[in-house]
Design a protein around this nucleic acid. Structure first.
Lengths: 219, 219, 219, 219
DNA sequence: CATGAATGAGGCTTCATTCAT
DNA sequence: TATGAATGAAGCCTCATTCAT
């Protein structure tokens, strides 16, 4: 599979090294925040010298942007794999909600990076074309789903695709992002898989009721 | 040289100075994050010397804890003033949702500090008795409201007070906290009061539908 | 004379410490150039920590500006002490030439700092009011001397004060500034006091002849 | 893959590449100083990789020496082309002065490199045989000119060739080297061609008077 | 109570040089 | 001959904290 090379050779594989650094950066920025992330830590975790990071990424900010891009892109790939358009509307919303919830739970890095970016008032996302357009196809898919759901009298009127996504993402994001403070004040362990599953079910219910058509009522 | 002030007046100065420092800390920690906040900045904004901050607060972490306590306490006071128990259940949920939304919009400091605390894995909140019990009365109130709502066949079954609060807070918090990235990817200006009002209405609708009893359906 | 203080106390004398740092900076910038001067070196030579330099001077550039100001000011004080206006014109020019020559020889720091500033295309001198006006009184004095010299038929026409100063300074500056390369290519040791004295005499002669009225020629 | 070139052509490429690097080095060392010049900049301006510079020049210092040699050699070629020995003494001195002045104005690189070398206390020039002897023929020519000038009663006694060259070079060098600081303190724009021409004329006058025989005076 | 002088550690970044390819 | 990946050392600057006054 891999090109035959002696095992202990000095790495000279541009793409592989770059990827190792980027992955380390995603970890470190997520764990320590934008200000707290030391290039030294990234270097250590990537197993390279600090100087090499600058060789590939020029500076801290560009490294952060790429880390953020990678995280968001991964979420979007996951969401794109759901084939929402092939499902009936209710199932589609349910599947998207479950997938989004799971993704945020399993990938707290994304949450951390998004929080960092918002603390910086979105100064980096504006520079990234890939980020700025990342959600376009999802919104299109949701538009389609909502239209079908309304046609089938399953969804109520007045819900825009953006509003729906904000609600789904908001519920999932908040639970994962604030799990420590919430766990403390409500005396639960939101790290516990049981609690997590329960909350996921609650959110799915909440979303489905939140958009459901109200029987016996004109739309 | 200086005339010794009467003890009472001295005491008041003491408290005033301390309060000025704490308010500056709330601003600076919120604006610059936990790592980014420099004691120097706090000193400058409070109009005192760095040494004085240490005189009153011992160290950076304790200052942060007090800042966080002050923010959360302020929110809880606001929520406590809503007199939810005197309202009919639907109105109570609506009022709580509106108030929570408005508070997060108007007080981004709280959001910033909560995000900082979660980035630190809740290490400070655990040390603060006032924070750990801050939400207890709210949960009790919600319990009462939910019970009344169910009794009146207005709310569906299976909703716990914590779940309800998580949903309300999640929708509101996320919108305010992530306003920069969301604004960018959805090409809206979520700083615009018009957009804000619209989103608030959506959230209220969403919450009320999300917990509403479903007519013609056994609970 | 000095305030009685225990000898080994930690220095807390703002002005004295600041002056020590500035003097170290003058040495280090002169010895190592603007780019070559390490704040670490300045700190070591001043006997303080690096951080303290920033406490007093904010950054490298401001430190350099103050160092340059101090050097130029010192030269100008020396020149101002010459009481040129009280001398007869020829003696005044001679004295200024000798003093300028000696100053450049004895204070290579000034030369080095001026060279550094010119390498930086004068970006700092423009910000310093004290530097921008430093030569005004000298030019006035030269104007007076030249006028008297012409009146006495000792100096030829057509020499402006600035031109005269440029010539004097040029001859003296160049000899001191380029002493290493000149010494090498002309196989002399221009560090040798004997050579230095000889060159000084040559320059004085050259200047006096250079501006002298030409007998038997209409001015 | 690539067709092996004939040896001659290869040789020419080699020289061309080397020359491109050297020219880039002259620019960069002059512009950024010895300490400020990054090998990376030289590589970029030469359009080659950093490694190649080391291939041809071994290290930074040797590259600097060659850059300095090239600059000085170019000046000396220019001066050698003046055919001073064919001119009458006064014309010869005038021509040398004008040429030297113009060269320094048009080639600030030489000035910058000489200043750098003097900051380094002439540590490189001592290693370069070509530099150490670069001025010998010029001094010989000046000796001849001065002798003829004295014989014709046009030049005064007591002027050595080295002294004459120091004076000419000093006046010209200083004006060009210090143009930024001088321009600032005397509020002139010494980048202005008009000012430059005027100063050149002054210097020529100054030099010619400075060495002229004094009529009616015993030499 | 209050200031700000002082330090030491740590973090970002640059760069000369080496070396695998 | 030529590239550029990789390192290690060094340099600028910031900052929490301490402490003399």
């Amino acid at each position: 599979m891999t090109r035959p090379k002696p095992a202990k050779e000095k790495q000279r594989d541009r793409e592989r090294t770059r990827a190792r650094i980027l992955m380390a950066a995603r970890d470190v920025f997520a764990r320590d925040g934008f200000d707290g992330a030391a290039m030294e830590s990234v270097a250590r975790e990537a197993g390279v010298s600090k100087g090499l990071i600058y060789h590939y990424f020029d500076n801290r900010e560009l490294l952060f942007i790429e880390a953020l891009e990678a995280e968001v892109t991964e979420l979007r790939h996951r969401q794109a794999d759901l084939e929402l358009r092939t499902l009936d509307p209710v199932a589609a919303v349910e599947r998207l909600t479950v997938a989004t919830f799971d993704y945020f739970i399993e990938n707290p890095r994304l949450i951390s990076l998004l929080n960092a970016e918002n603390r910086l008032e979105g100064q980096f996302i504006r520079r990234s074309k890939v980020l700025l357009t990342a959600y376009d196809t999802l919104i299109d898919a949701l538009e389609d789903i909502l239209k079908r759901g309304r046609a089938e009298r399953k969804f109520r009127d007045g819900i825009t695709p953006v509003a729906l996504y904000l609600s789904i993402a908001g519920l999932c994001f908040h639970f994962s992002s604030n799990r420590y403070t919430l766990g403390a004040v409500f005396r639960r362990s939101f790290a516990d898989p049981e609690e997590t599953r329960r909350r996921r079910a609650e959110i799915v219910e909440f979303v489905l009721h939140g958009i459901a058509a109200v029987p016996g009522q004109m739309s």
